[in-house]
Amino acid sequence: MPRNIIECRNIRKSYVNGGIETEVLKGVTFSVAEGEFVAIMGPSGSGKSTLMHILGALDTPSSGGYFLDGKDISQMTDDELADVRREKIGFVFQSFNLLPRATVLRNVILPLIYEGVAQEKRREIAERALSDSAFPEGFWNHYSNQLSGGMMQRVAIARSLVNNPALILADEPTGNLDSKTGEIVLHTFQALNEGSHGKTIVLITHETYVAEHADRIIHILDGNIVRDERNLRKRVAKIEESSRA
C-alpha cells in the first residue's frame, strides 16, 4: 500500500462577502496515494478552484485538516506555505504563466533560484526536466513568448518538475490549447505519471474528455464530492511523432 500524498479530512472553506457568508467547500474528504493520476472534475462554481488553491497550499481551509506528504499544512502561515509550495508542489496553470522576454531555460530555472540550488547545478536540472517533459532541445534558448501554446505549456510542465515535487497540480492545463496540442500536453502528463517517473498528478478540469486521461476521477458539485471513481475507460493520449516539435 503506497503512502498518501494528499489527505483531506472534512475540509470546509467559506468566504465572507458583504456580510454574507458563502460556504464554497462543505466538508471534502479524500486522499490521493503516491503515484496516482487523479482528475478533479466539476462545472464552474462547483468549488474545484477553491479546492485547487487549498491543495496547492495557496490558501488554507476554514476548518478541517489537510495533510500534504504527511504534513498538516492547514494552519500554516503565508511564509510556511511558501516553503511547502517550493518543496512539495509543482504548478501547471491554464495560462502557462511563463516569464515573458526570458528564455525557456531561465523560466525552468526560476524555482531553483528560490530553492537556493547552486548556480552550476541549475542548468543540468533544468535540462533534465525539459527532456522529461519532451520539450525539443532546439528551442531551449528561445524566448518563451516566441513559442506556441503547446510548447509554452510544456515549458511550464518542465518548470513544475525541477524541484522534484511530491505533487504536480495542473489547473485546466489544456484550457487555452486546441485539441491537438492539448493531446500533447496530456500525453506529457501520462508519461510523467507512468514508468520510472511515477509522478503524483492532480489535474483540475471541467471537461470530461480531459478528465478521462486520469486513473481516477473525483466529481465535485456545489462544494461536495458527489462521485469518486476509478476511471475504467482511461484514454491514452496519442501523438504523432511529427507533432512533438
Binding site: G56, D79, A82, D83, R85, R86, F91, N97, Y114, N163
Partner: peptide, 16 residues
C-alpha cells in the same frame, strides 16, 4: 501582478 503571483506560487516568500 501575474509574475508576482507565479513567483509566490513557486515558493517565493514575502521577503523575496
Amino acid at each position: 501582478t501575474r509574475e508576482i503571483g507565479l513567483r509566490k506560487a513557486i515558493g517565493a516568500k514575502k521577503k523575496d
